[in-house]
Write a protein that binds this DNA or RNA. Structure first.
Lengths: 151, 151
DNA sequence: GATGCAAATGCAAATCATTCGCATCTTAAT
DNA sequence: ATTAAGATGCGAATGATTTGCATTTGCATC
């Protein structure tokens, strides 16, 4: 399942974005590729499934998936988040511009928001939080998408 | 550990806000009280600990805590969320105005944000999300509070 | 106030995502 | 090619949450 609109772009992206000092192994490359080709954040289980979908018995271990994700996160190329609507963590590559999603509570599809319209986050801090150093944020909208009715 | 500024207000709040058709048991009342008296969202473990802090052997079971929280959530008086910085879910009573927090990645303290400054969330939806019915949202700022240095 | 039944609780066992220990295999630098 | 540091695979361990089931309790009814 290579990428969609620009053939080869994933390979080039790997060349350019591969984090400094991180060994290239076939597992890591495969996981990176899956993340790069996905347009929504993926869970470890989804990545594991995609990795092993074409083989009889698993070629890649679950622990490897988690360890690679951890490695990418430490290296700063991956963002981990825990969505309210799911019970498990999901992961996506950090692109230049981060993303937020509207998540359907029924089908669990994730729709990227137009853009991050959060202005000055610092202004939201109260006096008690004086001196708080902001390093990140997370916004999530949830509800029901047009294909799913409420109940 | 009764409430802080207004003696009895918790009892009155329980009278007024107790959800329709939900039996009052001492466990549920105790859990509601703990949530009402807390100024930050609490995890199930924190609630369990508070419940049992004054007795030799546990008076209340963990499963009861989870089941009560589920009941309150279903009844709509409780909001569950999974913060990025923690591994476990946290819970808080739904007050009229919902809250968001700045969370310290080191000490895990939660500082309520001044207010929800998110304007029209619908405008953030992209075309693909046409027809999405928004039922809630979650915003979270993370970083390091003034008492904790970065590393 | 006593009674009955549906619903709630306590306990322990089960589940599910995630992490860890350790022996073996790979990467990448020499 | 050689090799040491680091990565992987496997299965067992962990920790949060859920569940089955026997027992207890809230509360509507007498």
């Amino acid at each position: 399942m290579p990428c969609k609109m620009h053939p080869e772009s994933t390979d080039r992206q790997i060349e350019r974005n591969w984090p400094e000092g991180i060994k290239k192994t076939k597992q890591r490359i495969a996981i990176y590729r899956i993340l790069a080709d996905s347009d929504t954040p993926l869970s470890a289980a989804e990545i594991y499934q995609t990795l092993n979908q074409n083989s009889e018995k698993p070629l890649y271990a679950f622990s490897t998936v988690y360890r690679c994700l951890q490695t990418f996160e430490d290296a700063g190329v991956l963002a981990k988040s825990v969505l309210i609507s799911e019970e498990t963590a999901v992961y996506e590559l950090r692109t230049g511009t981060h993303r937020h999603y509207a998540i359907c509570m029924k089908c669990h599809r994730k729709f990227p928001l137009r853009s991050c319209m959060l202005g000055d986050l610092r202004r939201m801090l109260s006096e008690e939080a004086e001196g708080f150093e902001i390093t990140g944020h997370q916004l999530e909208i949830y509800g029901y998408c047009s294909s799913c009715t409420r109940s």
